[in-house]
Simulated assay, not measured.
Amino acid sequence: MKILSIIVPCYNEQENIVDFYDELLKNEAYFKSHDVDMEIIYVNDGSKDGTVAEVKKLHERDERVHLINFSRNFGKESAMIAGLERAKGDFVAIMDCDLQDPPALLPQMYEAIVNEGYDSVATRRVSRKGEPPIRSFFARMFYRIINKMSKTEIVDGARDYRLMTRQFVDAVLSMGEYNRFSKGIFGWVGFKNKWIEFENVERQKGETKWSFWKLFLYALDGIVAFSTAPLAIASFMGVLFCLLAFIFIIFIIGRKLMFGDPTSGWPSLVCIISLVSGVQLFCIGIVGQYLSKTYLEVKKRPLYIVKEEL
């Protein structure tokens, strides 16, 4: 019998643990008919509510339910990699606990892998119903920008919800970087991938853990991790402003020789200095981002620390 591993990152999701489990098990009959058993791996990412207690109750009812409990909050990326490292399945799925990733799609995703020869079946939202308009706007802009900068395609509306073969999972695990951006990693490893589209499903219970600021930082991580274009932009801007400064110097000398210096010119000088200083700080900031990621990589700290496992 083959095994399907379901990885479920959790952060303060006590209200959704049982609901997700019940919804997932609606697919149990289908997978049993295809000689596939399930294991469910809840990864508790430092929750401060009763998430761990709820998972332990499920474990007592169903031995197929497992728990990886982190010592603190390490982030969703760490939770996903912890689940992937411990998944025993021939097929592995990553799903959110809040039911925004419909478990009803799993049979369709499984059929695509087994019958159509795909290595990975991923999902993407075709709408952002329920999201604030400003958040949706910046999300779409992010995908446009990163796809212009990076050679790795990152699909607009892509979710972390996907079903993968063991070979695909092993390829993802072979990428041992500390600064992880899974949407980019899934695209970088290649293989044959299929996308399934669905309408956005709003969270059933609780509140989203992704604030605008957290999403901005995550997007910045993605750009830095899968593109060196910002460094090229910084270099181009440096050359451009050196050229403009040289032209301006020639202009000033020519005006001085031809007309003298009737005005002191300090307002224009202040504006130019401010502009050039701003560009310099911007470029240094870009270099700093890459340097900070390199610093984190070379320290070789673990991606997560496990407090307990079931």
Rank of each mutant, 00 (worst) to 15 (best):
F31M: 09
D221Y: 12
F216G: 07
I113Y: 04
G117W: 12
R166Y: 10
A87Q: 07
V189N: 09
W188I: 01
E199S: 12
E177G: 13
H66Y: 09
V52Q: 04
D119R: 03
I223D: 07
L173N: 06
Q280T: 12
G288N: 06
F226I: 02
R203D: 04
G285T: 12
A158H: 03
S182A: 08
S174C: 08
A29F: 11
T294F: 14
D45K: 00
G288P: 02
L24H: 05
S274E: 00
I41Q: 01
F198R: 09
N12M: 03
E23G: 02
Y11V: 10
R124D: 03
D221C: 07
K56V: 00
N179R: 09
F216H: 12
G288Y: 06
V306P: 05
T263E: 09
F74C: 03
R128K: 14
R162H: 14
S71H: 06
P302T: 11
V43D: 00
Q14A: 15
F142M: 04
F91D: 06
F137E: 12
I272R: 01
T123I: 12
P262Q: 04
K88S: 14
G117C: 04
E309Q: 10
F181H: 13
L84R: 00
S150H: 13
G265R: 09
F91M: 08
S5C: 05
S268Y: 11
T228M: 13
E63Q: 13
R61Q: 12
D261I: 10
R255E: 10
N147W: 07
M38I: 12
L310P: 00
T263C: 00
I305N: 05
G285W: 07
L24C: 01
D119Y: 04
L106P: 03
F91L: 15
Y290L: 04
D90M: 06
A104V: 03
G285N: 01
F259K: 02
E111R: 12
L173E: 11
A225E: 13
I253F: 13
R180N: 02
I305F: 01
M164W: 08
M1I: 11
F91Q: 08
N16Q: 15
Q289E: 11
F251C: 03
Y42N: 01
I81T: 15
T294D: 08
R135M: 15
T208N: 14
A82R: 04
I17Y: 08
K214Y: 09
N16K: 11
V306Y: 05
S120W: 03
A139Y: 05
Y304G: 02
A122N: 08
K209P: 06
L243F: 15
W266N: 01
M175E: 14
L281D: 00
R203G: 10
G117V: 06
I286Q: 02
G222V: 08
D49S: 05
V298E: 09
M237R: 11
V287R: 12
L24N: 04
K32W: 13
A225F: 02
L4P: 11
R180G: 03
W213G: 00
G285H: 06
D170F: 00
L275K: 00
L281I: 05
N147S: 01
G184S: 10
A112M: 11
N69V: 02
V65C: 11
